Deep mutational scan, measured.
Amino acid sequence: MSGIALSRLAQERKAWRKDHPFGFVAVPTKNPDGTMNLMNWECAIPGKKGTPWEGGLFKLRMLFKDDYPSSPPKCKFEPPLFHPNVYPSGTVCLSILEEDKDWRPAITIKQILLGIQELLNEPNIQDPAQAEAYTIYCQNRVEYEKRVRAQAKKFAPS
């Protein structure tokens, strides 16, 4: 494992614990031996107030490669969400998460999670990743928002 990646992720964890947006979660997972795995984080993004996503808490896994922060983490909703920019596998399609697009090593975990929260309610229809959600979003916004509200209710924190 890269010392650069681990040191950056340790800084990220410290900064997150000191200050993070209300309702968001970002925690490194534990290895079988109980030690912390900084390369694999369990996160959760709350649906934004005043949107059909409100009330939901959407679980996301963030996986970092050894060359982080040169390369972005892979962000994957578990379980996958109904959304035009979420692949059926759950992987998020967002330009700041793509090395050859808008990724920059200075982007923080907090910025990534806030960017994904923004994307939930403002899909990028130029870059669809899920045919069904994309089609319904474009053709029947009322039905799309109904499905999103049902999903938010399903993923409401207990």
Rank of each mutant, 00 (worst) to 15 (best):
Ser2Tyr: 12
Ile4Arg: 09
Ala10Ile: 06
Ala10Asp: 00
Gln11Val: 13
Lys14Gln: 04
Lys14Glu: 02
Trp16Met: 02
Arg17Thr: 01
Asp19Phe: 12
His20Ser: 01
His20Thr: 03
His20Pro: 02
Gly23Gln: 00
Ala26Asn: 04
Ala26Phe: 13
Lys30Asp: 06
Pro32Val: 10
Pro32Phe: 06
Pro32Thr: 13
Gly34Pro: 00
Asn37Trp: 09
Leu38Val: 01
Leu38Tyr: 14
Met39Ile: 07
Met39Ala: 07
Trp41Ser: 03
Glu42Phe: 10
Cys43Asp: 07
Ala44Glu: 13
Pro46Trp: 02
Gly47Ser: 01
Lys48Ser: 03
Lys49Thr: 08
Thr51Glu: 02
Gly55His: 13
Gly55Phe: 15
Gly56Tyr: 04
Phe58Ile: 05
Lys59Met: 07
Phe64Gly: 03
Lys65Met: 15
Lys65Trp: 02
Pro69Met: 01
Pro69Glu: 01
Ser70Met: 10
Ser71Leu: 07
Ser71Gly: 15
Pro72Cys: 07
Pro72Trp: 03
Cys75Tyr: 03
Cys75Ala: 10
Glu78His: 13
Glu78Tyr: 07
Leu81Cys: 05
Phe82Asp: 02
Gly90Arg: 01
Val92Met: 01
Cys93Tyr: 00
Leu94Thr: 03
Ser95Asn: 14
Ile96Phe: 04
Ile96Ala: 02
Ile96Gln: 06
Ile96Glu: 00
Leu97Cys: 15
Leu97Tyr: 05
Asp100Val: 15
Asp102Ile: 06
Pro105Glu: 00
Ala106Met: 00
Ala106Asp: 04
Ala106Ile: 06
Ile107Ser: 10
Ile107Thr: 09
Thr108Cys: 14
Ile109Phe: 08
Gln111Gly: 15
Leu113Gly: 04
Leu113Val: 11
Leu113Met: 11
Ile116Met: 14
Gln117Ala: 14
Glu118Lys: 11
Leu119Gly: 05
Leu120Ser: 03
Leu120Ala: 06
Pro123Gly: 02
Asn124Lys: 01
Ile125Asn: 07
Gln126Ile: 12
Gln126Thr: 13
Pro128Ser: 13
Ala129Ile: 01
Ala129Thr: 02
Glu132Lys: 07
Ala133Ile: 03
Ala133Gln: 03
Tyr134Val: 08
Tyr137Gly: 02
Tyr137Leu: 07
Gln139Trp: 09
Arg141Ala: 10
Ala150Met: 09
Ala150Tyr: 13
Gln151Ala: 03
Gln151Asn: 07
Gln151Trp: 01
Ala152Ser: 08
Lys154Trp: 06
